[in-house]
């Protein structure tokens, strides 16, 4: 089997990373650029410093998630944005809960 070596680029670290313009985001997600602008105004996705037309490349993942939620569950864009925010919060809480459980398990099961 052939193995190709890929350079993984970390998205969140401000290393030299290509960004996407509104038009590029629109093209990648199959949307009209005006709709992308509307979704930015709605706060569903955010540009890199909140003002310019540059987006982190993984913004497309969030956008697609919102579009699927809207399509499959009959949500409005606003509703989809709310769901995504709540999902982020749940994820954060789950991570914290995991840490907490890790800590308390240690006290419970540790046998010196």
């Amino acid at each position: 089997m052939r193995t190709t070596v890929m350079n993984g680029l970390m998205v969140q670290w401000g290393q030299r990373l290509e960004t996407l313009s509104t038009d590029e985001v629109a093209a990648r997600c199959g949307l009209h650029p005006t709709l992308v602008e509307r979704l930015v105004a709605l706060g569903l996705i955010e540009s890199l410093d909140g003002r310019t037309d540059r987006f982190p490349p993984d913004v497309t993942l969030r956008l697609q998630r919102a579009l699927r939620l809207r399509r499959d569950l009959g949500l409005s864009y606003n509703g989809a944005a709310l769901v995504l925010e709540l999902l982020d919060r749940i994820e954060d809480l789950e991570r914290r809960l995991e840490q907490y459980e890790h800590q308390s398990n240690r006290w419970k099961y540790k046998t010196p």
């Binding site: 089997m1 052939r2 193995t3 190709t4 070596v5 890929m6 350079n7 993984g8 680029l9 970390m10 998205v11 969140q12 670290w13 990373l17 990648r28 199959g30 490349p57 993984d58 994820e91 991570r95």
Partner: peptide, 28 residues
């Protein structure tokens, strides 16, 4: 099935993403 060796940056934390350009699906 193709195998790729992904270089994982040192000190990557949970919740962070590694992007592999052009390895996603076909564009429309």
């Amino acid at each position: 099935t193709k195998t790729y060796a992904v270089k994982i940056p040192k000190g990557i934390r949970p919740g962070q993403r590694i992007r592999l350009a052009k390895l996603g699906g076909q564009g429309t």
